[in-house]
């Protein structure tokens, strides 16, 4: 086998480095074209973490899908997120269809989804759509997905730990 062919083969078998969004809280960044899960109890700070990621990537358009809309947009500018670049959707039982539409539109760099726990097949579909759109999908959940979590590229558990002074 020639050297050129060997080099070609090497490039083919070397795992492709995934692009990622800069994120000061996580050294490797948040991967594009993949699903990331942020889990934690109510009030643990997972939404704030998502907002921080969005604020640190100011040129990206963001889609924010919730089944029951509880996100509070007034907090977004306080976390450095410009509201004009976020499209919200209150999807009720159609959160996955909505997220899919948003991914297929090719407009958004980040899609945040806050919905019921997803099944393995649904996660796989989401992963494929994210990969095709080269978009970072952030799943916000109370408990981390354990069974059938393989389509999720990165799972981060958010915990503020012991109380610290706010001021």
């Amino acid at each position: 086998m020639s050297l050129a062919k060997l080099a070609e083969l090497r490039t083919l078998i070397t795992p492709r480095k995934r692009e990622s969004f800069v994120f000061s809280e996580f050294q490797n960044g948040i991967p594009r074209g993949a699903v990331t899960e942020l889990s934690g109890a109510h009030g643990s700070g997972k939404t704030r973490m998502a907002l921080k990621l969005i604020a640190e990537n100011p040129s990206v358009h963001v889609a924010w899908v919730e089944d029951q809309f509880t996100a509070y947009p007034c907090a977004f500018p306080q976390q450095g997120v410009q509201l004009g670049r976020v499209l919200f959707a209150e999807a009720e039982d159609q959160a996955l269809w909505t997220a899919n539409q948003m991914l297929r539109s090719g407009i958004f760099g980040i899609v945040v989804i806050n919905t019921r726990p997803l099944e393995q097949i649904e996660l796989r579909r989401l992963q494929l759509a994210a990969e095709q759109a080269n978009t970072a999908v952030l799943l916000l959940s109370e408990d981390p997905t354990i069974e059938g979590a393989w389509p999720i590229a990165l799972q981060l558990q958010i915990n503020r730990g012991s109380p610290r002074r706010l001021k």
Partner: peptide
């Protein structure tokens, strides 16, 4: 146009005002 098309499609399926951007209002009430 792509943004409008997406919002139109979502509103048609989910209902009016279900896909939106948020604007701050000058009101003390949360």
């Amino acid at each position: 146009e792509a943004w409008d098309a997406l919002v139109g499609r979502l509103c048609q399926r989910l209902g009016k005002d279900k896909a939106f951007v948020a604007n701050l209002a000058e009101d003390y009430l949360p």
